[in-house]
């Protein structure tokens, strides 16, 4: 059986890759996909702990995280469609009306 630590390290690596993507990409869809990647890394940690502690609660948490991620994706992608209609751009640096 693969130790829990291996899964946690993998989860940390994937989360960090997602953070790098959100910080460096300027395309709003790509940033959104990196957020999904981070959510999945957290899910992996939840499931690793669920197995380690012999409890089912971690898997229930992952279930709810996935549900919220689906709702978030629907609303976020609708916002992206509105953005493309109004500004004709996907570059988040172009969307700075609320920047002081």
């Amino acid at each position: 059986m693969v130790p829990t630590a291996h899964y946690l390290v993998l989860s940390a690596i994937l989360f960090a890759i997602g953070v790098v993507g959100v910080l460096t990409r300027r395309n709003v869809i790509a940033m959104f996909m990196c957020i999904e990647l981070m959510l999945n890394a957290v899910n992996l940690a939840f499931l690793a702990f669920s197995r380690h502690l012999h409890q089912l609660d971690g898997q229930i948490f992952v279930f709810f995280v996935m549900t919220v991620a689906a709702a978030e994706a629907a609303v976020g992608l609708a916002l992206i469609v509105v953005l493309s209609r109004q500004k004709q751009t996907m570059d988040v640096d172009q969307v700075n009306e609320m920047k002081g």
Partner: peptide, 18 residues
Amino acid sequence: IMVLFIFVIMLVDPEAES
């Protein structure tokens, strides 16, 4: 979720980002 993403990518056709 990824089908939704690809639909939106095809819908808004994002240009190569700067």
